[in-house]
Design a protein around this nucleic acid. Structure first.
Lengths: 159, 159
DNA sequence: AAATATTAGTTAAGTATTTAACTATTTTTT
DNA sequence: AAAAAATAGTTAAATACTTAACTAATATTT
């Protein structure tokens, strides 16, 4: 049986999706602004990869793709760019030669020292006057939405 | 005075931003899948513009850009594509000749008849088992984040 | 009224993403 | 062990987005 959904909920979901896009755009704009101020030649996408590596160095491209929610083809491109800037390097995984492990160079770690303060600043700004619990509930909401979308085939099958 | 933010909150915000990206990606994937099934030659970005026009026809490109949270340069590109497919047309606004009013063609309205059911389906799916109130709170959260980011200069000034 | 500022749209160059086909390697199945 | 399937990464072409500089039109200031 098809679930009845009041129209107001669809409107809400449209608004929700739009506001997600807005927050995402503003976060990118914040980063671009900081890059400009500090004369850093990076894009927000490349910075996402760097942030991932600062938290967990020496992982392969597919894992970075999973964490950053990007396609592996995009990662090839982004890692090429970061390697050209000598911020990361590719090394073949001896245990599984399909993998290329991405590790930070000294220059890549130096960038962290410089960028970490204003990344913290960005998250402090975005989370200003928001209770931790609210964010947690927001994560739960997003995860439910993601699961709903991921399970679409299963849901269709049980009709 | 600088607000203290516990590390756990920053971690939560990072997770929140990642989950936003994931939901966004899954929504696009859903649409792409439907386009393929129905042999529709459109991208999810073009569809966003069409959805905007079905709700409000005859607005200018800047207004569409505001609603879809895109750059006006992107709109030039997307409207070019939709016009080429004869789904929309540009007409000069007589009252203000800077504006180009975008109106749907008959073909553009026909597409709505076809696409509306599975767009509804998409929003029903994404909102499955989620109380309307939760989405409303999610919108409030996103709006607070957006405002925080938009007001960054004002906030810096009052330090 | 003239000068200045703002707004809407376009263009071009550079960057990012997606898809699909491809290679190489490893894992699973037969 | 051989065949088949799965996984990681690359490549190329097409699409999408961003930035900055630009034109044209309108609004505001002087």
């Amino acid at each position: 049986m098809k679930a009845e959904m009041p129209q107001v909920k669809k409107e809400n979901l449209i608004t929700f999706v739009r506001e997600m896009a807005r927050v995402n755009l503003l976060l990118k704009a914040f980063m671009r602004q900081k890059f400009k101020e500090h004369n850093i030649d990076l894009t927000s996408e490349m910075m996402q990869v760097m942030m991932t590596l600062w938290r967990k160095d020496g992982i392969n491209q597919q894992e970075i793709a999973n964490i950053t929610v990007k396609d592996k083809a995009s990662l090839t491109y982004l890692i090429d760019n970061l390697a050209r800037r000598e911020l990361v390097q590719r090394t073949e995984d001896e245990n599984d030669r399909r993998n290329k492990l991405i590790t930070l160079t000294a220059k890549g770690w130096e960038l962290k020292e410089m960028a970490a303060p204003w990344i913290d600043e960005m998250f402090e700004l975005v989370g200003k006057d928001i209770a931790s619990e609210i964010v947690t509930k927001g994560i739960t909401l997003l995860e439910t939405m993601a699961t709903n979308l991921e399970n679409q085939h299963a849901n269709l099958a049980e009709d």
